[in-house]
Design a protein around this nucleic acid. Structure first.
Lengths: 173, 173
DNA sequence: CGCTTCCGTTCCGTAAACGGAACAGTCGGG
DNA sequence: CCCGACTGTTCCGTTTACGGAACGGAAGCG
């Protein structure tokens, strides 16, 4: 595992909260040198150090550590989707995916069962997706929804890879 | 957090698999002294060490910390949110939560930083959420989006608990 | 009973993670 | 301009986590 990944996440989380490195170090009770080295990935932090920092950030270890291959991942020509959660309800079953769409390629997907809907929230990039004959477009922060009982497609608009969350809803028969 | 707890878990997991300390140390590529001290809680293990051991045990690292801080959950009067993923991008940082809203209570949430948006996809139940003075309503399968730099609220409509995914988008300053 | 082969712990020199202090760079005010 | 307060990085002495080796103890076998 790469300590640089953990470092980048810590830095991202810290900046997200608008806390300076100095302040976080003081609050967490660790040296500034320690925190600096941790964020750069040049150190191999101790459990105690990680604990102090994450506790102060109010973030669990889960947010720092990239999940090993425990998650099922679906690869396509353009789309890579990892299943985050399955939720079963009296009316429907939901599958929540983390989705990435590579630029330059369009992925076609056959029709699902009647009544199945897809809900996409775009994190980064611009996504064009939906029924193949009438696709929809959404930029970062946007949301798409369509009934996927017809052939549909996914494509990234422009050069940037698209990151998004994908929710599949299968109504109970 | 107590390193002795982590140690006991490692020992428990190891004995569960019927592997000796010496063998696990060799497989994981760490010293027997290191593993012995780790299991006794007399050491303060390094991220690298923990990683090597948990990887060899086939445990996703979260299992060690599962009980104490591993609850990334945020509890409120009505809402329980579990952090599934943090995604950092050049333009914004995203936090994806699994959210449950208990019926009968309304949860108020203070304003976030300017530009922060919330995106909710409802799995089950009917959710009323958004700016406190102009809330939105969505049934199962529906989607809500609002700018959360004003006070906002969450409430379940009816008796059924609401299950949903919540995406928080923090634009880069 | 020796002898071998494991077990887990302890000892110890080395490598490195630790925090404090000193550092350059930036911003805002007098 | 100069100062103070702040940012994050680097230097450095102390502490300590590291792995190899040595240790006592428990089986298994001739």
């Amino acid at each position: 595992m790469d300590p640089a990944v953990v470092g980048r996440r810590v830095r991202a989380l810290r900046e997200e909260q608008g806390i300076s490195l100095s302040t976080l170090a003081r609050l967490a009770g660790v040296g500034k040198a320690t925190l600096s080295g941790l964020e750069h990935g040049t150190r191999n932090p101790t459990l105690e150090t990680l604990w102090a920092v994450t506790a102060q950030l109010g973030v669990p270890f889960t947010a720092l550590l990239a999940e090993p291959a425990a998650e099922p991942t679906v690869h396509g020509t353009a789309v890579t989707a990892t299943l985050l959660e399955v939720f079963t309800d009296t009316d429907a079953t939901y599958e929540l995916y983390r989705m990435r769409v590579a630029p330059g390629v369009t992925q076609l997907s056959p029709a699902h069962a009647p009544g199945v809907t897809e809900h996409v929230t775009v994190f980064a990039g611009v996504l064009r997706a939906g029924p193949t004959d009438a696709p929809l477009t959404a930029p970062a922060g946007g949301h798409l929804r369509w009934v996927s009982d017809v052939p549909h497609s996914y494509a990234a608009v422009g050069d940037e890879e698209v990151a998004a969350s994908l929710l599949l809803r299968y109504p109970r028969r």
